[in-house]
Simulated scan of single mutants.
Amino acid sequence: MLSRLDAYQILYGVLRDGSRPIGQISFYRGARDPEFGRRDQEMLRGLLRYLSLGLRTEPSRARPQAQAEVVEEWLGIVANDGTAISAPLNWSRLVRLLAMEKVAPRTAHEELRVVTEFLRRICTRLHGPDGAPIDQVDSQHDSPWGQFRIRAFRLPDGEGREQDRVGLLIGRREPRALALARGAGASGLSPQQREVALLLADGKSNLEIARTLALKPNTASYHVKQVFARLRLHNRDEVEHVLLHLAYEGIVELGRDDGARSATGE
């Protein structure tokens, strides 16, 4: 099955929250690619440890787990049968996050069918129990990627007559932990410093950071100072704000990329 995707080599790791598995990461290479080596394995171990810190489910003692740290919203146009007619790439990304419960190579060949069926179900809600048309529906969806809001509405033609077009405005409120992890990834910090920054954002002391990362206290303090210097900060309370700002800037940059592609006709 994987050979159809040219996935002849697999590097696989389990993402854990303490002793509880919460996900998996798999890397694939083709038959002609070099084999995975020790350096790749070390990279995966560091990535798993970094993501485990960012996606842990245990709420911070300093602040409650929150949604809506980063908000994005994109508009797409589809037909009543769920076929996408006009939509930016970021809208399509949100639809995939909503429609595909699990993203894995074995489900990649089903993506178009699953996404189209998901969109079709949303569109059918614009018909009441008696078949009468409804102008607009509003629904909420929860997923590991955040809280989603979908507003579906009929699009009339230029003369106000009903046509086979539906506008879907999709918004996402991102969990704080995921936003912090994305912000750390965009910070330019080293892998070790990103781990330290996430723990600082979670309200951890230097001693707690040392225990969590199995470091000596002096080493943990050194990394904290490096985080402050690299991010140009003066106290611990600023770390969370900076990481969330970097996460927000990442969403803004996605919008700029979409706009540039639209302008060039890509």
Rank of each mutant, 00 (worst) to 15 (best):
Q136C: 11
Q67L: 15
T57H: 09
E253M: 07
C123K: 05
I85R: 15
L246T: 10
S187L: 13
N80G: 10
L207C: 05
E266V: 11
R16L: 11
L213E: 03
E42L: 10
H234F: 11
L112W: 13
V252T: 13
D157I: 08
A62W: 11
D237G: 12
P191N: 09
L5E: 03
W145H: 05
R256C: 13
S205M: 11
N90T: 14
S92F: 05
P88Y: 10
E58N: 01
N218M: 01
G203V: 13
G146R: 00
A31S: 02
A177T: 04
R236V: 04
Y12F: 04
D135F: 12
I170K: 02
T124P: 02
A87R: 00
I10A: 06
E208K: 14
I170C: 04
I22R: 05
G46W: 14
D130S: 15
P191F: 07
A62N: 02
R173A: 12
A186V: 14
L155K: 09
E35K: 07
I85P: 13
L213S: 06
V114G: 06
I10H: 03
P64W: 01
E117C: 05
Y248D: 09
G13N: 07
P175T: 06
E159Y: 12
R4T: 09
M1C: 05
E195C: 12
I10W: 00
R56F: 05
Q163H: 13
L48G: 09
K216L: 06
L198K: 12
V252D: 09
A179I: 01
R121P: 00
R39D: 01
L155R: 09
T57I: 05
P88D: 01
L215N: 03
W74H: 13
Q67D: 13
S60R: 03
L11S: 10
L48R: 02
E159S: 11
D257P: 06
N80P: 06
V242M: 10
W145T: 06
G37W: 08
R96V: 10
E110L: 08
I170V: 15
G171S: 15
G167M: 10
L11H: 09
T83A: 05
M1T: 05
R113G: 13
